[in-house]
Design a protein around this nucleic acid. Sequence first.
DNA 1: CCTGCAGTCTACAGTAACTAGAGGGGCAAG
DNA 2: CTTGCCCCTCTAGTTACTGTAGACTGCAGG
Lengths: 154, 154
Amino acid sequence: MALMTIGKLSGATAVKVTTIRYYESIGLLDEPQRSASGQRLYAGASVERLRFIRHARDLGFPVSAVRELISLQVEPGRECVLVDQIARRQLDEVRRRLTQLEALEAELKRMIRACEGGKIGTCSVLAALGQHENCLHEQHDGAEVLAGLPSKGA
Amino acid sequence: MALMTIGKLSGATAVKVTTIRYYESIGLLDEPQRSASGQRLYAGASVERLRFIRHARDLGFPVSAVRELISLQVEPGRECVLVDQIARRQLDEVRRRLTQLEALEAELKRMIRACEGGKIGTCSVLAALGQHENCLHEQHDGAEVLAGLPSKGA
DNA sequence: CCTGCAGTCTACAGTAACTAGAGGGGCAAG
DNA sequence: CTTGCCCCTCTAGTTACTGTAGACTGCAGG
């Protein structure tokens, strides 16, 4: 297949042009050939590499993990178990987030159910937010929300 | 209750000192009194306010939403329905993330199950990541992972 | 009173993973 | 030759903080 510009590569992989350049800048993608005028020219293999990265990112692997995976790919013959470890780590992380989100969903539902269009002074959503535990007047057995949810890692 | 330093407030709310100062800098917290030497001195009400913020953040509300909620709190007598809207928006967001994460969990599990300790050349985790759709050899009905998961908004 | 140390101050830089914009050059079609 | 889209580099902004440097304060022990 012929060489393609960054725009074509972007189109073929659904990764934005700026993001491709960003990946290059952080060393996820090798520097490609350049045309006489300085435009990047990619070979077909770049499509595979970029799809790999994109998919791993979509799965929530941090860039650092993607980097590890790429290095494992590049240097074959090593144990698959390393790759497996990275995937398991990611699965643990995903499950942790799932648990948190389920607790959040429950609490938000409870809050909304209690909000019946009254005035703010009696709004239980605001009241619930002011509480440390037991978000409404009713008890609930310690489905306390974990700290720092979607801030950064999520 | 007596005035307290930022350290005490931090201890009382489990919000880090630096984070408290950050909240002040972005206007989530009012500027407190200062001692003669310039140290921040907080009254008891700050504990409530900060707990409110903390809880809302733990629930995944972005700072912008917390700001809205605070302004609704400060100016009472308005319709509870606005608060309700914010909470519902947040619930939708949480559910969206839940759906994505469930798809991720399924895909990761499938990947790991297929990884039986072989060499990298045949490792299906890496193979799966290279695929655009149908992550393993078996079919699965379009549980395609959505783009840009935990990158920013998540 | 001195020393030491924990606590506080400001201000700036760094994090993750991009996204957006400024200001300019290149290339093919009409 | 001009229009218009594509490409270039570089910088700054995003979100919600966290960490660091360098200096000052407040309090207890000796």
